[in-house]
């Protein structure tokens, strides 16, 4: 156990020394890996922010309840009180048909059309904000409200939330695919780096083997080398994404404000950051392992 720990410590130290011995190669390697990793990591950062923004904008789905055109004042009052008493409604707002008409008259272009109508074409309506936002709950409420007396039509305003959700899922898939492709690239780059390393360490490997080194012993410093280079690439990617976040923060906030939303970009969330470094190290390790296996099999 002690010998095992010692071997790992020595292998890690040797790998670090080899990285430090060729600073230019190490830096270039980290840059190549970092740029490859920065693309999916940046995509993930944008996605996380987009999701927060989407939640901000479309957080509360609404249910519109339209009364029949000829519904009496009493009917409207009756439905209003039912809606207000309902356990699942958070907010109920009555939009009177006269107000709707007035709003349309004020809007350019439509004013003339509206003016010429024989009577008010708009019904009284309620905008209901539900407590439970789950799609099933919303649909249940829609069906229930539709049965209220003199209610003509109930509309769920969740269609575009669904569209947004589908878009987010698609984007997430694209980021995952990008990560997979660039992950393969990372393994390939490490594979080649280690292959070149093996050429320069040939004597040492041969002598070590003659003196009783196991395959694991010979492999270990290279595995650490691959993992450390992967981690360095991860760091470069993380810094690049961090820089991009701060560069985008101002302009994005400004655009959001134009839409009346107070929004500030966040950096890559912690779980994604951990995943970035973990995967970078793991893929570097894998590339080294494949390279060594090919060599040791000879």
């Amino acid at each position: 156990m002690k010998g095992w720990l010692l071997h790992h410590r020595q292998a890690a130290a040797l790998a670090a020394r080899r990285l430090a011995a060729t600073p230019l190669n190490t830096l270039l390697g980290a840059l190549v890996l970092g740029i490859a990793l920065a693309l999916p990591a940046g995509g993930e950062m944008l996605l996380a922010n987009f999701q927060r923004l989407a939640q901000r904008v479309a957080a509360t789905p609404q249910i519109s309840v339209f009364m029949a055109l000829d519904a009496a004042k009493g009917d409207v009052a009756d439905v209003e009180s039912r809606l207000r008493r309902h356990a699942q409604t958070r907010e109920v707002r009555l939009v009177r048909r006269d107000d709707t008409l007035k709003r349309f008259k004020e809007s350019e272009g439509l004013a003339e059309v509206i003016e010429n109508l024989p009577r008010n074409p708009f019904p009284d309506a309620f905008v209901v904000v539900p407590r439970d936002e789950a799609p099933a709950a919303l649909e249940a409420m829609r069906d229930e409200f539709a049965k209220y007396p003199r209610v003509e039509h109930v509309q769920l305003d969740s269609a575009w939330v669904k569209k947004l959700d589908a878009l987010l899922r698609l984007t997430r898939l694209a980021v995952a695919l990008l990560a997979a492709v660039l992950g393969v690239a990372l393994v390939a780059v490490t594979f080649n780096t280690i292959r070149l390393q093996i050429l320069t360490q040939r004597d040492e490997m041969e002598v070590s083997r003659l003196l009783g080194a196991t395959d694991a012993y010979i492999r270990r410093p290279f595995l650490y080398f691959g993992a450390l280079q992967g981690l360095a690439g991860g760091l470069v990617a993380w810094l690049a994404v961090l820089g991009a976040t701060f560069l985008l923060r101002g302009p994005v906030g400004e655009v959001a404000r134009l839409y009346g939303i107070e929004f500030s970009m966040h950096i890559l969330p912690f779980p994604d950051t951990a995943l970035l470094f973990g995967l970078a190290a793991l893929l570097g390790w894998l590339g080294a392992w494949l390279s060594l296996s090919r060599h040791l099999a000879k």
Partner: peptide, 27 residues
């Protein structure tokens, strides 16, 4: 070995250390 197989990029001390490092002898 007939051709010695010394490591020329390591010091005398480190060359002799190699078998012990391989065997996992405490530093």
């Amino acid at each position: 070995f007939q051709d010695q197989k010394l490591l020329f990029d390591r010091s005398v001390f480190d060359n002799v250390m190699l078998p012990l490092a391989i065997a996992g002898v405490a530093l």
